[in-house]
C-alpha cells in the first residue's frame, strides 16, 4: 500500500471520529443548557475548551452563548474541527484513497457528506438541533458499519482503526481533562445535585450513561466515572480500550509486514503505563497531569506512526 494511502485512511477515520465526537459534545452541552437555569454559558465555554478550540473561537466571538457555539462547532467552515469541515476533510481523504475502500464504504462516506453538507448549509434552528445531532451520529455510524461489514482485515483496516482510536482516545482524555476539577475530591460535595448533573454530562458526551450504570449499578461518584472512562477495558471509548486497539492494530501491521517499528513499542508502553495504574494511583499522581501525559504520548505515537509507515515520505 502507498504511504499516502495509509495516511489518507488514517485521516479519513480520524476526521469521521472527530465529527461524531463534536456532535456528542454539542449534545451534552445542549442537555445542560436545557436543564439548568441561565442557559449554561459556562457549560458552552467548557464545550469549546474540550474541542480544543477556545483561542480560535475567541478570535471571532465575544461570548459563549449557545447559538454561536453550536454554529461554530457544527457548521463554521473556518473552524477546521467543525462537523462540516471534518466531514469535508474525511470525504476528501476518502476520494484520495478510493482505491483502498470498498464501494460500500466509499458510498456511505459520500452519502454522509452529501446529507450533512445539505443539513449544515443553512443556520441551525433550535428546534432542529436534536434531530441534526442524531443525523450526524447516524451518518458516521453508517460509515463505521460499512467498514466493519465489508473491509478486509488487512493493513487498510489497521490504518483506518489507528486513526479512529487515536482520535477517540484524544477526545475522551480531553473531556476528562476539561472536567477534571469536578472529579476531584472534596468528598463533601459528592452527591450534590450540581455534581451529578455535571457527571452525567461527562458520561453523556461519550454516550456512556447506560454503559456506566450497567458497570456500576447504584452508585455515581467521581472516582467510579474516572475509573470507567480511563481504565475499563470493556468500555469502547475508554482510554484503556482505545490504547489496546492501537496496540493490537500496530501488532497486526508488524506481522503483516514482517518488520517491527518504534510506534508499536510506544503503543505498548502507553497501554501498559495506563492500565498498570489503579484509579487511586492516578488521583494521587494528579488526574490533570496524568491526562495531559496521555494526550502528549498519544500525539507522539501518532507522529511516530506517520514516520514508520511513510505517510509523507
Amino acid at each position: 500500500m502507498l504511504g499516502t494511502t495509509a495516511g489518507g485512511l488514517f485521516w479519513m477515520f480520524r476526521n469521521l471520529e472527530r465529527s461524531e465526537n463534536t456532535a456528542r459534545l454539542v449534545e451534552a452541552g445542549l442537555r445542560i443548557a436545557l436543564t439548568r437555569p441561565g442557559g449554561g454559558h459556562d457549560e458552552w465555554e467548557s464545550v469549546v475548551n474540550t474541542a480544543g478550540a477556545a483561542a480560535d473561537y475567541l478570535s471571532t466571538h465575544q461570548t459563549f452563548d449557545g447559538a454561536s457555539v453550536v454554529d461554530y462547532l457544527l457548521r463554521d467552515p473556518s473552524n477546521p474541527s467543525s462537523v462540516l469541515s471534518a466531514m469535508e476533510a474525511a470525504r476528501n481523504n476518502a476520494r484520495m484513497v478510493r482505491t483502498a475502500l470498498t464501494r460500500e464504504v466509499w458510498e456511505a462516506t459520500n452519502e454522509s457528506w452529501m446529507r450533512l453538507t445539505a443539513a449544515l448549509t443553512k443556520p441551525i434552528q433550535d428546534r432542529d438541533l436534536p434531530q441534526l445531532l442524531s443525523l450526524i451520529r447516524r451518518e458516521t455510524t453508517l460509515v463505521r458499519g460499512s467498514l466493519a461489514g465489508t473491509m478486509m482485515r488487512n493493513d487498510q483496516y489497521d490504518f483506518a482503526h489507528l486513526g479512529m482510536f487515536l482520535e477517540r482516545s484524544d477526545n475522551t482524555a480531553r473531556i476528562l481533562d476539561v472536567k477534571y476539577y469536578l472529579l476531584l475530591p472534596p468528598e463533601a460535595q459528592v452527591g450534590s445535585r450540581l455534581d451529578s448533573i455535571q457527571w452525567e454530562t461527562i458520561l453523556r458526551s461519550v454516550s456512556a450513561q447506560r454503559a456506566f450504570r450497567w458497570a456500576n449499578p447504584g452508585e455515581m461518584n467521581a472516582r467510579a466515572i474516572a475509573s470507567f472512562l480511563i481504565l475499563d477495558p470493556r468500555m469502547p471509548r475508554s482510554l484503556a480500550f482505545c490504547y489496546s486497539k492501537l496496540n493490537d492494530n500496530l501488532s497486526y501491521l508488524e506481522s503483516t509486514y514482517g518488520s517491527s517499528v518504534p510506534s508499536k513499542a510506544m503503543a505498548q508502553d502507553l497501554l501498559q503505563s495506563t492500565t498498570a495504574s489503579s484509579i487511586g494511583d492516578i488521583f494521587d499522581q494528579g488526574l490533570h497531569e496524568f491526562l495531559q501525559s496521555r494526550i502528549e504520548l498519544a500525539n507522539q505515537l501518532a507522529s511516530q506512526i506517520e514516520t514508520d509507515y511513510r505517510f509523507h515520505g
Binding site: 500500500m1 502507498l2 504511504g3 499516502t4 509486514y257 511513510r310 515520505g313
Partner: peptide, 8 residues
C-alpha cells in the same frame, strides 16, 4: 521508477 509504500 518506484512508489513509496508503507514498507519503502
Amino acid at each position: 521508477l518506484a512508489m513509496r509504500t508503507t514498507q519503502g
